[in-house]
Amino acid sequence: MLGLEYFTFEEQWSPLFLAFMLLLTAAYFAVTGPLSSRFQGSEPVSAGRKLLFVSGMLSMYIAQGGPVSLLGHTMFSFHMVSMAMSYLVATPLLILGIPVWLWRSFDRVNPFGRSLGFLTRPVLSAVLFNGLFSLYHFPAIHDFVMLNFWVHRAYYLILFIASILMWWSILQPIPEKDRSTGLAKMGFIFLNMVLLTPACALIIFASEPMYATYSDPAIWAKAMGYCVSGDPSALLNRFGGPEFFGVMDPKVDQRVGGIIMKFFQEIIFASMLAYVFFHWYKRENEEDDPLPAEVSSASGMLS
């Protein structure tokens, strides 16, 4: 399906990356389980929070190590699915999956907290993440990154860190450090939705394919050489180019990719907007009613 049958198990599932992700997951369960007593203020971690963390790790693995990653080298639309899963789905799940007491422990020993704390400021973190994401999708930069293995790895790591900073400003997992009002958070979410729009629009409305990685057979083969074994030139002899795997014309595939990214962003941020509004509205109502719940209930019965 989609050409996956032409690649080996190792090429589709990246066993080394899978082992790394499993190791991190095992470390999480050890720290939140038998080793939790070593952390100040530790409490039992709910099954729901653990599920969030595992879901985040699974999303990251599928996007960066599973078949979606491989397909992202043959079709631009899958590249965008990989980006959305990595930075809009996996990151917030991982942040929410880590218990508050563990975040507090990390914050106490974090050597960069004071010097780099300004990077978590909402507007700056939004501009940083969306700017790096948009910059990456300029054709010349995208093709350069895809053709240079260590640059590719470094850029993706930087994007991941930037996405953590961006989501941190929205979610702020340490309650006593959450100084943003619900209205401010909603404005910040809207800002993120706006900042990514120009890059998506550029991709969606381009009159021709923008990326040589998905349209030039020689460049495609070189980029594929970083995720499959053997001589990249053999890919050209065997398949001829990326169009062998494409179920759409390259221009259509590119437009679908831009739509997918914007769709993911709109759905996820709209859901987050509803979540923030609900909690903000609930908190505002509680502040408007200074009487304890029992007193309010009794007053209602007497009236």
Rank of each mutant, 00 (worst) to 15 (best):
R179D: 14
V145P: 01
L183Y: 04
T120G: 10
S169I: 05
L191M: 14
F112G: 05
A199K: 01
L135C: 05
V127Y: 04
W167I: 13
N192R: 12
V100D: 03
A199T: 05
V145A: 13
L135G: 11
F188R: 00
G113E: 07
A184T: 15
V194S: 07
L183R: 15
F144V: 13
L132K: 12
L195I: 06
W150P: 03
L195V: 06
L135V: 11
D107M: 13
F188N: 13
A126R: 02
T181D: 02
R153P: 00
L196K: 03
R114W: 01
I170H: 03
I98L: 01
A140K: 11
V145M: 12
F160L: 13
N130D: 00
I141A: 06
N192C: 14
F129A: 11
R153Q: 15
F149K: 15
P175A: 09
F133T: 03
S115H: 05
H142T: 04
M146R: 09
L191A: 14
V151A: 14
S134L: 07
W150I: 15
K185E: 09
G131P: 03
F118R: 07
V100L: 00
L116P: 03
V194C: 01
D107L: 06
A140G: 01
S163A: 15
I189P: 04
T181P: 09
R121N: 11
I170N: 00
L183P: 01
S115N: 09
L159Y: 02
G113F: 02
F112I: 06
V145D: 01
P173Y: 11
H142D: 03
R108L: 13
L196M: 12
D107P: 00
I161Y: 09
L102D: 02
F138G: 00
D178I: 13
W167R: 08
A154H: 01
M193F: 02
T120H: 10
S180I: 10
R179K: 15
P111N: 07
M193I: 07
D107R: 08
